[in-house]
């Protein structure tokens, strides 16, 4: 069944997510973890967009190419596109926060090794 573009894109997205997760799970360096999460985020966004894709249709913008009357049969699903926009921005906010954290953590301990921040436990 893996025929459509959407499937391939989605598969790529999932793989990116898994790669990102693997990076986040195995890298002890905070910055590398953050980068890994960015990769996973990208994967998520690709999956999001892929879900909205429909074969043989065009972007949901009404212009001369897509008259209003034909819109229903000509455009792809606009909702995932709207969602992905939000998701990207939120991901950015989170990344910024994590970077700020990494910076402060480094200030405290002069290390970026996550395994060094385990005073709180049990």
């Amino acid at each position: 069944m893996m025929t459509s573009l959407a499937h391939w894109a989605m598969a790529a997205g999932f793989v990116l997510i898994l790669i990102g997760f693997y990076g986040a799970l195995t890298n002890r360096n905070l910055l590398r973890m953050i980068v890994a999460f960015c990769i996973a985020d990208t994967g998520v966004n690709i999956v999001l967009v892929a879900v909205g894709h429909m074969r043989g249709r065009t972007a949901p913008i009404l212009d001369s190419a897509v008259p209003v009357a034909d819109a229903v049969s000509r455009i792809i699903d606009p909702v995932p596109q709207a969602l992905v926009l939000t998701a990207i921005v939120i991901g950015l906010g989170v990344t910024a926060m994590m970077l700020a954290y990494a910076l402060k953590l480094y200030e405290k301990k002069r290390t970026l090794d996550i395994a060094k921040f385990t005073e709180l436990k049990w």
Binding site: M33, F37, M97, Y101, A102, K104, L105, I114, E119
Partner: peptide, 13 residues
């Protein structure tokens, strides 16, 4: 003491 920071980062992860 850095503890709060570490906790917050764990939360973010």
């Amino acid at each position: 003491d850095g503890l709060t920071l570490a906790a917050g980062f764990k939360y973010m992860i």
